[in-house]
Each structure stands twice: as structure tokens, then as C-alpha cells.
Design a protein around this nucleic acid. Structure first.
Length: 292
DNA sequence: TATACGTGGAT
DNA sequence: TATCCAAGTAT
């Protein structure tokens, strides 16, 4: 079973959300910032931060001129703050090597920090109307169901997943980009992971999963990601202290966030230093990088 | 290919 | 309350 692109595009044109990074006036930079922020982070949390960023840093060189600490503060609690550092580095590269204009070529985009297979193609497609297979978690789920008749996508396989989507893509560039947006929108709003709204689905009639009687997912179990008590949680707490204070802090102020296990806490702090998310200044205090 | 990497809302 | 899950990337 396939997916009819015209049906999808018609549905998208009728029902899509009016997100700011989808407006015609939005620049490639606006699209890139949105794509990085949206990695593993819901639209509702991204939108207000995206607005602030585009207002404050309307072009890559503007972001590049800010310090890493400023950028991390502005990132707030979006999560995975290494994304903010990579976007900052990408902005510097774009400013210096690409005339302050986000590249439209997939391979050029892939060479930038924080931009992988998904983001490079999303920017090429959504900012520049290029024809490229844009494969995110939504698209993988929609294809798994509508095309393969499975309850959900199995483990990601970049080559296979992109080939799957490539086979569905309209030949026309602009329509291919629109179709990709439609596929993602369907996965985000209708063909959702938990309770799919099949009654509202534009491709209900041709969906292989429907025809097969909506079998449950039978692939390998997905690793459940824990958070409470992990290094990720401890790192988050440490960083939260530094985001909240304009001045550098002594180690004692960091120690209080995880008194249970000093060894592990110190290793987390060390890993933050290694990642460049935290800096130790000359007098021994700790701070966000680049501000002191 | 498997794993680490933040955060918070929904169920 | 516990678990799931959200437009992934780097290693």
C-alpha cells in the first residue's frame, strides 16, 4: 500500500496549524532554529522561546555574537541544552562561511554542528522547497502504519526509512516539500503514537494498518528511558542553579542539588565541564561558559 | 546499532 | 504515581 500525495497535500492545505516557522515570510534561519528546538521537544514549549530568539537574534551572525552563557539562558528549560551550544556554533559557521544565509544544500547542512539526517532535509524542504525525504518519528510511524500495516515503526534505520519515504515523494519539488510537511502533520495530530484519531484520517480508506485490522505493534520492545535518578536529571539540576544566578557560584551551591551521592554528582559536574556547558573560572567558582 | 542526552504534560 | 512520549544527534 502507498500513500496518495495529493490527498495528503489537500488535507494539509485545509487543516494545518498556523505555526510561525511555516509562514512564507519566515527565513531559513527561522526554520533552522525551529527544527533544532523541536528535536525531542513539543511544539507548545518551543513556540514562545522561538519567538524570543527570532526577535533577539534575527540572523545567524546575531546569535554568533552572543556568549554561550547568554544562549544557554535564553534556551531556558527546553531541555538537551547541548543543542543550544551546537546551534550557536552552527550560527557562527553560517555567518563566517555562508554569508550569514542558512545553506539550502543537504550535504552543506549536514556538515554543520547539531544538524543530522532529519534536520538537514527538513531545512532544505521547508525553508527552500527542495525535494528530500524528511524522516522524523512522525513520518516513520505514518509509513509503518499506512504503508506496511504495522502498529508502529520498529527501530530506526536511516537508509531504509529514507528509501521508504523517497518512494512516496512526488516528483515535483514544491509538492514533495508540501507532502513531507503533511506527513509530519498527520503523525503529529492524527496518526499519533498513543490514541490515533483514525476517524479523522484523510487516508483511512487506503491505510494498510486499517485493512489489516489494526494489529498491535509486534516489533522489538523499545527501550524505556528513565529520568528520575539518572545523570541526566543531576546534570539538569546543576545547570538549573547556574541558569538562575547572574554571578558565578562556589561548588557548595552546586553540591546541595544532589547530596545523595557526591561521587556521582561530581562526575556529572565534570561531564558538564567536558561538554562545555559549564565553566570554572580563575577563582574556582563555576558559571555558564563565556560570561566571565 | 545501542546508548546518553532534559524537561514537563498527558494518561 | 509511574510510564509514555515529544519535528534527533553524536558517538
Amino acid at each position: 500500500m502507498s500513500i496518495d500525495s495529493e490527498t495528503m497535500i489537500d488535507w494539509f492545505d485545509r487543516t494545518h496549524r498556523d505555526l510561525p516557522w511555516r509562514r512564507p515570510a519566515c527565513t531559513g534561519w527561522g526554520v533552522l532554529v525551529s527544527e533544532i528546538m523541536l528535536q525531542q521537544t513539543p511544539v507548545a514549549r518551543v513556540q514562545p522561546i522561538w519567538e524570543e530568539w527570532l526577535e533577539r537574534w534575527p540572523v545567524p551572525s546575531a546569535l554568533a555574537a552572543a556568549s554561550q552563557g547568554e544562549v544557554l539562558r535564553a534556551w531556558g528549560k527546553l531541555g538537551y541544552p547541548r543543542r543550544a551550544l551546537r546551534l550557536h556554533a552552527a550560527a557562527a559557521a553560517i555567518a563566517e562561511q555562508h554569508g550569514d544565509v542558512v545553506p539550502s544544500n543537504v550535504d552543506t547542512l549536514l556538515a554543520l554542528p547539531g544538524i543530522g539526517a532529519y534536520t538537514a532535509r527538513a531545512v532544505a524542504a521547508f525553508a527552500y522547497g527542495k525535494r528530500a525525504p524528511v524522516v522524523d518519528t512522525n513520518v516513520r510511524r505514518v509509513v509503518a502504519r499506512a504503508v506496511h500495516g504495522a502498529g508502529d515503526a520498529g527501530p530506526a534505520s536511516n537508509t531504509r526509512d529514507m528509501a521508504d519515504v523517497e518512494a512516496l515523494l512526488p516528483v515535483d519539488e514544491a509538492r514533495a516539500a508540501r507532502f513531507s510537511a503533511a506527513l509530519m502533520e498527520l503523525g503529529a495530530l492524527v496518526c499519533t503514537a498513543r490514541s490515533p484519531r483514525c476517524a479523522d484520517c484523510p487516508i483511512y480508506d487506503t491505510c494498510a494498518w486499517q485493512r489489516a485490522g489494526r494489529p498491535a505493534y509486534d516489533g522489538p520492545a523499545k527501550p524505556t528511558q528513565k529520568f528520575a535518578g539518572t545523570d541526566r536529571q543531576i546534570r539538569g539540576k546543576l545547570l538549573d542553579v547556574l541558569r538562575d544566578t547572574p554571578e558565578p557560584v562556589w561548588k557548595a551551591s552546586l553540591d546541595v542539588v544532589w547530596p545523595q551521592d557526591a561521587g556521582r554528582r561530581d562526575r556529572c559536574l565534570a561531564s558538564l565541564l567536558t561538554d562545555g556547558l559549564v565553566e570554572q573560572i580563575a577563582d574556582g567558582r563555576f558559571a555558564l561558559p563565556g560570561e566571565h
